[in-house]
Amino acid sequence: MCDLIILIYMIRYTAFLFAGLLLLSACSNRPKNEDLSVDFVEPELDELVVSDEAMTEVIENIASPLEVASLLSDLDVPFSVAYLSDPDNMSSYSTNLEMAYFLGALSSDLGYLNMYNKTGTAINYLSTINKLTDALDIGQFFDFIKMKRLATSENSLDSLLFTSMNSFNRMNSHLKQTNRSNLSALMVSGVWIEGLYLATQVYEKTELEQVRDVVGQQKHILNDLLIILESYEKDDYVQQIIEGYKKIKAQFDEVTITYEIGEPETVEVDGMLMVIQAESSTIEMDAVTLSNIIDITEEIRNKHLNI
């Protein structure tokens, strides 16, 4: 037995020695002045287009729990708890599909609460999100105890924002990696509807031009989201979500977005490079269309979230 182990070790060492000699000889054969620089080859035009088929798996950031809230906070729009869904509604969800959708909506609400530093209220949301992530077997990416501690501590808002967003990203990736992309799609759909609801409600109160643009921009995002959801339309629940979103889309079809082409402008501020896209978009959306979007969003969101 002992001899056999020694023999295995000898074979291993001989193999390593042989590989090392091969490597050395390969290096010594390279001409001293050989140009090893490699030019970056620009991707082909057709490589840059994200096809409908690829959309399902590759595209990210379709809906973000933080971006609408971050913009509203940046515009000094006052906070209102009236825009939020009810975390105590969890008992009305029984399937994984329903829970994933609800998790998305609550993640969006949590982003809004955190962005406005309403961490006391956020604890109810954290508690329900914790239960939902456990039910969906993604609880390992949601550190409830840590988040609760951050929510109750002063001066830890940045950490809370980071931890909640990072958890969301990792839960979403894990769902995709474990062949549960349907749950990921529903979670993202929940984030999206709650973000749109937030923006439409804020617009109704403030009539801020920037918020109106946020609403109008959702036309393209909704189209992409529907492509993703339609991959899972065999599920009855996904079908219900699609039907609701198509009603919203019918109103967005009245929105026209036009583009003005221009070369990006590059400026350097304090050593940091900033590129300003010159290709701007103009959103044409009349008051009736906008009002219809606000109404249908509220109707569909309340229906899907059992409010």
Binding site: I59, E268, L273, V275, S281
Partner: peptide, 13 residues
């Protein structure tokens, strides 16, 4: 340059 900033004017992929 590190970091870099991008002011996006057009929503899309």
């Amino acid at each position: 340059y590190n970091p870099v900033q991008f002011l996006c004017r057009k929503t899309g992929p």
